[in-house]
């Protein structure tokens, strides 16, 4: 708080001060969300405008995939085993019959775990990468240099990362789904002696599951690079500024993924599953 605001706050009545304190919480949130929406809408505007740096899109896709493939596979692989192991025990106690577990598990993976957990992984891995890269370009004036040469930073830097992320989030979610289902099937087979053919049961899957899966992957694929880019573009100062920007990117992106998950699950429930 600067000296002026301090003096201003001191002059307020207790009630007024309590209301003013709300601003301390909400003003930064509102400014940040507005900023993210601004970067997002500009990115969309430029995503449909020529020229698109396709070579950069391919390169970024490679970066995203390469950086996260092993990470996503390991995390989802173990998560799949843990999920089946834990839920298997509980199901055995309550229902006693594990024949339907595969079908339920597959539905859960489609609706929820594959895209969302993958996105949370990407928020840390890809989000930090983008924020650090763009952030350091800001503090070393590279972004100013782009603007001086009439290269709009959002068009030049954000759009390729956005397009790459949309594609790769979808691809990685598919990979995650297969891996998690595979390891789950392995545990079901070895620990609970559920036949592989019984476990692989698609009878519960509907078109709605597939749509929700794609919708979530798409939403996360858009949100993560935009939030990370906004964090990077807002960096200031020296290397500490880049550090702050990367932290901000992970926190905001993970929050956004969780909230989007909630909203989209609700949408899925209303339109497809009720």
């Amino acid at each position: 708080m600067t000296k002026h605001t301090q003096a201003y706050v001191a002059a307020l009545s207790p009630t007024q001060r309590r209301i003013a304190q709300l601003g301390v919480i909400f003003v930064p949130i509102v400014t940040q969300v507005t900023e993210i929406l601004r970067v997002g809408s500009l990115a969309f505007y430029y995503a449909f405008k020529k020229p698109i740096r396709w070579r950069e899109v391919v390169q970024q896709s490679f970066f995203i995939g390469n950086r996260s493939l092993a990470f996503v596979m390991i995390v989802l692989g173990f998560l799949g085993m843990i999920l089946i192991f834990q839920s298997g025990f509980q199901a055995k106690r309550i229902v006693g019959d594990l024949q339907g577990m595969g079908a339920l598990y597959l539905q859960l993976l489609f609706r929820e775990f594959a895209p969302t957990v993958t996105a949370l992984m990407l928020a840390t891995r890809v989000g930090t990468g983008i924020a650090a890269e763009i952030g350091s370009m800001v503090v070393t004036e590279q972004v100013d240099a782009l603007r001086m040469n009439n290269a709009e930073p959002i068009q030049y830097l954000v759009v390729p990362r956005l397009l790459a992320s949309i594609v790769m989030t979808f691809v990685l979610s598919c990979v995650a789904l297969c891996v998690a289902f595979g390891t789950g099937m392995f545990v079901a087979n070895t620990v609970f002696e559920v036949n592989v053919a019984t476990f692989y049961n698609t009878s519960l899957l509907e078109w709605g599951d597939l749509i929700i899966f794609s919708l979530k992957a798409l939403a996360y694929g858009i949100t993560i690079p935009i939030i990370a880019s906004q964090a990077g573009l807002s960096a200031f100062g020296g290397s500490e500024g880049v550090g702050t920007a990367t932290t901000m990117a992970v926190v905001n992106a993970s929050l956004a993924v969780t909230i989007l998950d909630f909203v989209l699950s609700g949408v899925g429930y209303i339109f497809f599953f009720s």
Binding site: M137, T140, E141, Q142, D144, A145, R147, N149, N150
Partner: peptide, 20 residues
Amino acid sequence: EMTSVRSKIGMLFQNYALFD
């Protein structure tokens, strides 16, 4: 609108600002 003005200006930045 700034495009036409900026194409008249060359700038040397303090932190080099070379695209790494």
